[in-house]
Design a protein around this nucleic acid. Structure first.
Lengths: 159, 159
DNA sequence: TATTGTTATACTCTATAACTATA
DNA sequence: TATAGTTATAGAGTATAACAATA
């Protein structure tokens, strides 16, 4: 299929296939993230004084109670000092607690507080509502498919 | 539909609907971009000494020859000084030229050089090949749908 | 008055290096 | 030796403010 020469794959100039930007998934993801980051800022960031990274770390801890900082760092593909900084901020705001481990005295187990859970849930609720409004030109089925395909993309991290 | 209480929407604890992180499109986009940014770095960034933003600005100029810096800034939703910086870098590398406008002496028309076009095309080619390999667990149809749905997302920027 | 683009400057976010403590 | 986490520090990328030139 890729070896067959189709008219729409040949350029006017040289007859060679042109690499099409439109087909680069990473480019479309980047463009889409302009929209989703803007939506985050308006729907949750501004009202709750919440940064995207803050939200992500918070919900990750909420969904994986007792997890460690190293695990969060790996999940987000960022450095350990970076996570330390975000945990400092989240702890300072009373949304996350670091609990010393009893079996391994190097590690800490992370948990959200009631207040932290409330912030995370409110933010998620706001985001879902805003997305439903803003992306109403997508059907429910399309949104479901999109989420699943994005999820499949995210599975491949280091190949 | 949202007012009807469905069993799968109630939490064990309170009986209230739980806002599901999994359904937040922005979260999935952010997770997916970890994968695509890593892929960019390995497939094009490292070899061509190219930053994601550099690539994006370059291809945007290539696909919109004669466009202005202000237009690029709006397209990427970044500030004007930021674009000035990237244009400086791209011009210094001989990939982009600023051409003074004859009708409006404030503006410049942006064009890629032959070298710039070559870099952009090579990068795009490398990215497409790497994505085809890395995301081979998606069918061609799924990849097409994904690109189209992401494109539809990107249409909604400021609502 | 508004817009284009630049310079100066500061802030945010992320990383690397060096370290302590523990396994 | 390797891992978890912190501190110190530097770099990349972004923004705002102030400005000059032009519309």
């Amino acid at each position: 299929m890729t070896t067959r020469k189709l008219p729409e794959n040949s350029t006017p100039a040289g007859g060679l296939e042109e690499a099409r930007l439109h087909d680069v998934i990473g480019y479309q993801v980047a463009q889409a993230s302009i929209a989703t980051l803007g939506l985050f800022h308006r729907a949750a960031g501004e009202v709750l004084d919440l940064r995207p990274a803050e939200y992500t770390v918070l919900v990750l801890i909420k969904e994986n109670p007792g997890g460690t900082a190293a695990r969060v760092a790996r999940a987000l593909a960022v450095s350990a000092p970076n996570i330390t900084m975000w945990l400092d901020k989240l702890e300072r705001r009373g949304w996350v607690v670091r609990q010393a481990s009893e079996t391994d005295r190097r590690t800490q187990h992370l948990h959200v507080t009631d207040k932290g859970r409330q912030v995370a849930d409110t933010a998620t609720q706001q985001l879902l509502e805003a997305e439903r409004r803003t992306f109403s030109h997508l059907t429910v089925g399309e949104r479901t498919i999109l989420v699943e395909l994005l999820h499949k993309l995210a599975l491949k991290r280091s190949e």
